[in-house]
Design a protein around this nucleic acid. Structure first.
Lengths: 396, 396
DNA sequence: CTACTTTTTCCACTCACAGGACAAAGGGGT
DNA sequence: ACCCCTTTGTCCTGTGAGTGGAAAAAGTAG
């Protein structure tokens, strides 16, 4: 199929496209209820959208008592690619224009192999999704990378855990390879957008989304828009000092949050505990696998291992301490906890909550939900699809 | 003179009014260069503004080579009142519509006397300014109070240092008393708006403005707009933990930044040092005045007193530690330090800078100026005037 | 005094949009 | 089956915002 290149011609059309994306098929009349345009104007704009083939007619709508109306929906052949590059694995997913995931692959990988190797893998994963009949091509792609990004150009800047990517024109390169528009952002921001679109944060204008994975980052949403900061490094909370004169960190300082709690730190602590025979559970897992990761700690904790639970509590408490500061500062309406270590679940959440509710002011915490993300590993790819759809559904 | 009640009828007029406020008198042609409207449309809107008397014609503009044009300026009879209520004193100022201060009074006061007593004093100060011929009445007033505010309604919520004000309808009450529109905000936010309008932050879209006075607060500006948070308590950084298991704080926790460094804490430390005879300079000042305040510490430091300098360094370092965290999180383009203790000047600034540059990531600090506010005590009242002028110069 | 600029006004034309009239299509009661 | 009511879709005209060109007004430079 020929890919769609059309873009909305004006703000009204963009508005309508977003309504259809977020609300699914709608009749003209239902659209009219949401947009404050006269029926004639609305009809004109819908007709123009039909001409561009961005939307199509789609059967009869349910009756509301009078004449039944035809449904309008986003073209079901539109395909978006969501790519979430983590430190140690890649997620690639295909969605339709309503951002529903049609297919999703996850593969291990090492970002440090550099952009060329990683993109090769991403392209082959995308090809696999195409081959399975889910898409004949892509109308747009969103990419998340685990480091700061100069957003307008889509270029990583000085990313600590992916040195080979500094200055690599990710957006440009992938746009060439895929033959469609591409937008690039920090993976944490995409997770926030994912939870905002389809997860727990649907109705909250200002919230924080803390992602605890190999590292720790925080998506900041202000007035429904992701805030990226002056140089694109906003939300980089992994190197906030959590413990004065604490552990040395790769960044050169001591006591950084990431040095005390993150997927990597947790694995290290678990290894140490196992080697010192503090935990039979962890020791046996070490023996079986030859190595330990955050997943093992989660499993051990679920099995009731006290050492593992302590590690999680301790880390959650440190994280909670930092989040408490951010809550006082930012006064969000919601805090979402997500990322690889959400397997640690409610033990972690409870530790974080305890610390935040204890340390922040009542006015800020009074009505503040602190919850786990709803979407798990799909948050990133949904956010990526959302990123590019926001771009495609804005006036040219 | 009859007060102006007119408001701009549409976004174009609002835009023009703000241009005249921020850029002073302008010819129609100069305005045309800035607003992307056709000459005819511009002429129509300017004519309508002239009819409302919000703007007036004002002599000939400088020639640009051809026919000379008439200047347009905001009505020079417009008067705004800026009120900055601190913990221990009030500032009241009159400005014209271009937010230039025409008269400014400062008087000691105690917020804890409650809103009724304070407003009585504010009204008498406003009356004094009127009596001196600076104004015949006010077209609008902006008020800053030292605590969180539910912004749309202009009502303080659960302010820790001014308990009697909780829920008092400040906006409503003052609007009645003054007979003009009133807007209320946190004093720190107003300081940020002041520095944005007329101070160091003129061109920076995203910045932080840390005010160190009796307490410590932080104004947050995102995309040129003040961010107030979900419940209006954003920027309340005084109770972020700076020292684990540190000093007990009035809020019930331990180690809050405010407990370790603020005008109040500094005075307490100085008193202790004087009593323990650690500093001859401070001891003699205590003897002379019977009490010590932050100003005494500043003076002692300026005189070379080592104890006083140490107190400032220590405090600056604690503050810097907290700001470092905020910088990592928020990635601002500028950090402004202001408030009562700016008399501590460069000793303080240097301590803060050292800590921030050491602890935050290079990407966030690379090009980050940390500077003292330019406006001193006038920042608050200018910000207040700016607040109400933003309100008056927006479509009705 | 003339040639050239810039500013301002005036006017005709376009275009977006609202809102009413009317036709089309369906639901439900009798 | 029939009729009336409601909702939906289409058509059409009036209105008001806004554009852009022409010409007048008011300068400057030589």
């Amino acid at each position: 199929m020929r890919r769609m290149t059309a873009r909305p011609a004006n703000a009204h059309q963009a508005r309508l496209l977003r309504l259809l994306r977020d609300g699914g098929p709608n009749s003209r009349a239902q659209l009219g209820d949401q947009v404050d345009l006269s029926r004639s104007k609305l009809a004109v704009e819908v007709d123009r959208l039909l001409e561009t083939e961005l939307v199509v007619a789609d059967g009869l709508a349910a009756s509301r008592g009078g004449r039944r109306s035809h449904n309008i929906r986003l073209n079901p052949h539109l395909r978006l690619l969501g790519v979430d590059i983590g430190a140690t694995s890649v997620d690639v997913a295909v969605t339709n224009a309503e951002l529903e995931i049609l297919g999703h692959i996850n593969q291990p990988m090492d970002v440090r192999d550099g952009p060329v190797a990683v993109f090769e893998q991403v392209l082959s994963m995308a090809a696999k999704l195409k081959a399975s009949g889910l898409a004949e091509g892509f109308d747009g792609a969103g990419i998340g990378v685990p480091g700061p990004v100069r957003f307008p150009e889509g270029i990583p800047v000085a990313p600590p855990i992916m040195p080979g990517w500094d200055g690599f024109p990710v957006r440009e390169a992938l746009s060439q390879d895929l033959g469609c528009p591409v937008m690039v952002d920090n993976d944490v921001n995409l997770m926030a957008m994912g939870e905002q679109h389809a997860g727990v944060a649907r109705t909250v204008p200002d919230f924080l989304c803390v992602k605890i994975g190999t590292g720790i980052g925080c998506g900041i949403v202000v007035g429904g828009e992701v805030y990226r900061g002056t140089t694109g490094s906003a939300g980089d909370i992994g190197h906030i000092q959590a413990v004065p004169d604490g552990r040395p960190c790769a960044c050169g300082n001591r006591g950084c949050l990431e040095a005390h709690f993150s997927g990597a730190a947790l694995a290290r602590d678990a290894l140490e505990a196992a080697q010192q025979q503090l935990s039979a559970e962890l020791a046996s897992r070490l023996e079986t696998n030859g190595t330990l990761s955050a997943v093992d700690v989660a499993a051990a904790a679920a099995a009731g291992d006290a050492t593992a639970i302590d590690l999680i509590r301790e880390g959650g408490s440190r994280t909670g301490q930092v989040i408490a500061g951010l809550v006082s500062f930012f006064n969000p309406g919601l805090v979402v906890i997500g990322g690889g270590v959400t397997g640690l679940g409610h033990t972690l959440l409870a530790a974080i909550r305890t610390q935040v509710y204890r340390q922040s002011l009542p006015l800020a915490t009074g009505n503040l939900p602190i919850v786990l993300g709803e979407l798990g590993p799909t948050a990133g790819v949904i956010g990526a699809a959302r990123l590019i759809s926001d771009h495609l559904f804005s006036p040219a």
